[in-house]
Design a protein around this nucleic acid. Structure first.
Lengths: 143, 143
DNA sequence: TGGATTTAATTGATATATCAATTATAATTG
DNA sequence: CAATTATAATTGATATATCAATTAAATCCA
């Protein structure tokens, strides 16, 4: 497969970095004070308020340690509140604040626009293909 | 494009993270004491010994600041030597040491095997498609 | 020539990734 | 029940990403 596979992983790296920077720029431009990663974790918590931080970490493809630190920041920024879990004192109940809910909602259209713009000129079928191959790569790297 | 585009960017994120972890594991397993990023910078320097750090940064999709710090580490680990450029005293001449050249060479087959394994079951044509779309995404995110 | 601008690299601050070690609690099991 | 094991989360150390500010040298140009 000569140089093609070399190039592919470079493109993969560059594509996700480009999208992240693009999304972050648009987030800031619209006055939101969250990083992409903070947003990702906040969204995961909001969608799954009963999950442990470890489950959140898996969903957001993050390290447990990173989630601990990001949650800390989100609490400090008043996007999350943290209370001890009633049944299991090792865990926490994380709840998005009203501010968080409002911001997530306000960001939704921006996120959708970002994605649409990033995928401009790529058909639905092609996106489906793309996703299939990415999933295959993920599988292959488990070994 | 409903949820498909959502999923795609998650897959993209996960794919590159999976590959990085996979490659890093195999690197360590074979006794090399470099991170993927250090390897990337070292390789870029070796292939282009006359480039500025900024050019290296672009080639490796890295921030200038990151390259400065990675080069520091590579010098400390005795993979690079640094001398002031004869014509331009703002610049440095970076040269890979013998150890670096030997290690890069020794890692080459491992890197190739990593890539082959990660792309297992994906044809050459499909890889070319994949790359085309990734390049399109990179373009789209420039705006 | 000399002041303004550009370029190459560094530095500082903050956020995130990763690995290992640790703490606290819960669950298991002999 | 007590000892062991498993789980949830944190903490520390180091590496990298990002942005802004800074330093030093080169270039431009009136």
């Amino acid at each position: 497969m000569e140089k093609l596979d070399t190039i592919l992983f470079y493109s993969l790296e560059k594509a996700i970095k480009s999208y992240r920077q693009f999304a972050q720029r648009n987030m800031m431009k619209n006055g939101f004070d969250l990083t992409i990663d903070q947003w990702l974790v906040l969204k995961a918590v909001s969608d799954n308020p009963d999950w442990t931080q470890q489950e959140i970490a898996e969903a957001a493809f993050k390290d447990f340690a990173s989630v601990t630190r990001i949650v800390e920041i989100l609490v400090k920024k008043q996007y999350l509140t943290r209370a001890i879990h009633s049944n299991d004192r090792r865990r926490f109940n994380l709840s998005p604040t009203d501010k968080a809910i409002a911001n997530l909602q306000a960001m939704q259209p921006i996120t959708e626009r970002n994605r649409k713009q990033a995928l401009d000129g790529i058909s639905k079928e092609e996106v489906a293909h793309l996703d299939k191959y990415l999933t295959k790569i993920i599988e292959n790297c488990k070994s």
